[in-house]
Design a protein around this nucleic acid. Structure first.
Lengths: 191, 191
DNA sequence: TTTTTTTCTTGATATAGGTCAGGTTTTTTT
DNA sequence: AAAAAAACCTGACCTATATCAAGAAAAAAA
């Protein structure tokens, strides 16, 4: 099965591309294999690529001044990731992107995506709709963060992404939910 | 000065539209005046419109099971707002949108926006770029929520939006930052 | 201006969740 | 299979922030 199947299926859920447009889209994709614990994005450098996970798992996290990690994105197959702020604003990244497993990812350069979006209307549509869903989701997460208890956020996550919760280290999930690893351990033990 | 100047300037920052395209865009805008404390979106109904604030101030908030309010968006002139999840997914809204001041807003229906985006490439580009910036910002807010103390979040906000911080009620700001009104009051008094 | 409503402040108290420290289990590497 | 590293758990303690309650100040309405 082609490594492009996933992303093309994803596109097809939103827009219909001609064979030629598909060819052009594929031409900007760069395939990268990363080993577990390898960094794909590092602070200080502009996040040049929008990344799509074909296989594996990745997280994007921020390292604060006290050395604590805060995870912004946990992604598995069929997810996009990047330091989106850096990618969009062309400023140095502040986040790390780290492979949680050996992974296969497709990378598309900012300039190439912009060029395609400028030239090919349905591809612009695709990225617009994709980003809108991501924003809608992000708003929900914000509400969850400001209004729910640690335990509620944990349960909500497990309920929504049972496969992911069992696939990534617990301290990663804790840092995604804004909970200390110790507290998450206790939350789990009492339920 | 035309009530359309703001939104057209906003568009011009991202894309160049022809006179005809501008005319078509304006044709989908519906002007609405709302009084302070009036609701623009209410739970239970699909958020039909994407709203742009010409003048005034609006907040979008969620009322939890305990009757507590959690503000997702505080917007002033030149901001968009909606229950974005509802707007995008065509599901009943869960949030209220409430005018914080007498306001003048421009509303564009979901179907009309989609139709324009399908038909006019630069308009699709505009909404894509707009949404990307909003998502980048939302990611930053998420990090802030999960990694910073109440006091840090407050100072960050005041630093970033000094005009807004002085313009909206303190309890609204508190609910935006995920802090109780009492705690915010104390944070302010000790600095 | 007076009254009413809304918003903000301050004190007393409670608690969720953080931090520190140590040990155990699991996973990875050699 | 042993050794090393990574991840997880548990107890003791602490602190930031929430909650409850009541009054003061400010803003809006009459």
């Amino acid at each position: 099965m082609s490594k492009y199947k996933g992303i093309l299926d994803n596109i097809a859920k939103y827009v219909k591309l001609s064979d030629d447009e598909i060819k052009q889209f594929i031409s900007i994709l760069k395939t990268t294999r990363v080993k577990k614990r390898q960094f794909i994005v590092q602070p200080g450098f502009v996040s040049e690529y929008q990344n799509y996970i074909v296989e594996g798992a990745v997280r994007v996290f921020y390292l604060d001044d006290f050395g604590k990690e805060h995870t912004v994105i946990i992604g598995i197959e069929d997810w996009f990731f990047s330091d989106f702020y850096s990618y969009v604003h062309r400023t140095p990244a502040e986040y790390f992107a780290e492979a949680l497993e050996d992974s296969l990812i497709l990378q598309m350069k900012y300039e190439d995506v912009e060029e395609l979006c400028n030239r090919i209307h349905p591809i612009c549509q695709y990225f617009r709709l994709l980003t809108e869903k991501a924003l809608a989701y992000s708003h929900r997460r914000t509400i969850s963060n400001i209004s729910k208890t640690s335990e509620e956020r944990y349960k909500e996550y497990v309920n929504k992404y049972p496969q992911i919760a069992n696939r990534v280290p617990q301290y990663v999930l804790a840092s995604y939910l804004g909970i200390s690893p110790e507290s998450l351990s206790r939350i789990r033990s009492r339920s």
